[in-house]
Design a binder for these strands. Structure first.
Lengths: 212, 212
DNA sequence: CATAAATGTAAGTACTTACTAACAATAAAT
DNA sequence: ATTTATTGTTAGTAAGTACTTACATTTATG
């Protein structure tokens, strides 16, 4: 077999096994067997278990596709932007579920390696969406609030739902269902961030929360 | 030393070490040494490493205190209820940070043991808050939406923030800062769930989201 | 003080781990 | 077809793991 093919198979297998059983819970013998090669081949290609792990993290990093599609979205209505971004975020998490699992379980043992991936994905996404919210604020469409925190609120709803269902619950959520859920999340976020005048609101609605 | 004191020390030490280095990354030798006893003492008390781990999970389970305080809150204004519950939720996560770390890193290896804890805490909290939202909907204070999903949205914001900062970021968030952040989360949730008429809104605000 | 409960010491077992050495067999490239 | 790159086989090492046994020592309690 060609060198690159063998390495590819080993990387795949390592990603899967470590996401299922953890770094320490996965043995090099097992990886090699599941990849259909000898343990020695594994070491000839990657030198050590830890180097193999590092290559896995580099190879299966998140794609920055969400950041790329946002500029095209800026002419769509607010709720469509949130919906498309939200669904894209969830689908990315689902595609990279194995990587997410590894990040969660190995963050304490390899914080540096994991944080590089985490920041490269989340920070940029937050910044992009926050800039968009900030833009809508300046156009007086959204009420005043911290765009960074609102972004984290919206993405946080989705991430927590993913965590609860797909990671902790071990369930696989259908596309239809997640679209419905994210639709509700979008509604809450829209009503929660739109300027009241945009909602055709009268004045003196500051105490609206206290009269219950 | 008294039996109970030794066991207590061992349980504490196990919680801390496993939360830092994972179940497989923590050796019984190390636990015993850090607890100031012999490895043999550990086995005499708990029989096996796994049984010790189970006792740790049982002992340091989340307290259901949030559920208990909610009935007293029902006469407070909506925003105060959310704020108090949100801060309480975050503080609980922070207090049990070690347990949260263990749950995240061992969910794949011991899904049954972990899910018992997870469900015992989260499910009940969601149900309680969702019932409260449902109650406000029936009194026509909140607009129609799924109470369960809205609850998960609100708690999800907070949980994700906790994950991002305290777990992935390794930062410790001050009480002052988290109160400010949760204040923003509460604002979004309130505006996102209150009935428009409560916001003194005119009719025909259905298309408000599409005219951007 | 005396009895019993708890802990320590030390040695060891059976097993698993990441990783290596020497040599033979196979597949790919020229 | 022949060289070269890649893999397999087999055996092994040194270290670490959870856990045990037998016996001595300490500590708490009545």
């Amino acid at each position: 077999m060609k060198k690159s093919q063998t390495e590819e198979k080993l990387l795949e297998t390592t990603l899967r096994l470590i996401s299922e059983k953890g770094y320490l819970g996965t043995t090099t013998r097992e990886i090699a067997r599941e990849a259909g090669v000898t343990e020695l081949t594994l070491f000839r290609h990657f030198g050590s278990k830890e180097k193999l792990f590092e290559k896995v993290l580099k190879r299966y990093t998140f794609l920055p596709k969400l950041k790329e599609i946002l500029p095209e979205l800026e002419r769509l209505p607010y709720d469509d932007v949130l919906r498309i971004l939200g669904i894209g975020f969830f689908e990315t998490l689902k595609e990279r579920k194995s990587l997410v699992k590894i990040m969660l379980s190995e963050i304490n043992i390899y914080p540096d390696k994991i944080r590089i991936i985490y920041n490269g994905f989340i920070d940029e996404l937050i910044k992009t969406l926050a800039d968009y919210l900030s833009f809508l604020q300046k156009r007086d469409i959204l009420r005043p609030f911290s765009p960074g925190i609102a972004t984290r609120a919206f993405l946080g709803m989705i991430f927590s739902y993913f965590m609860a269902e797909e990671i902790m619950g071990g369930r696989i959520i259908s596309k239809r269902k997640i679209e419905k859920i994210i639709g509700e999340f979008v509604n809450i976020t829209i009503h929660g961030t739109l300027k009241k005048s945009t909602l055709k609101v009268t004045e003196a609605d500051n105490e609206c929360n206290s009269n219950l």
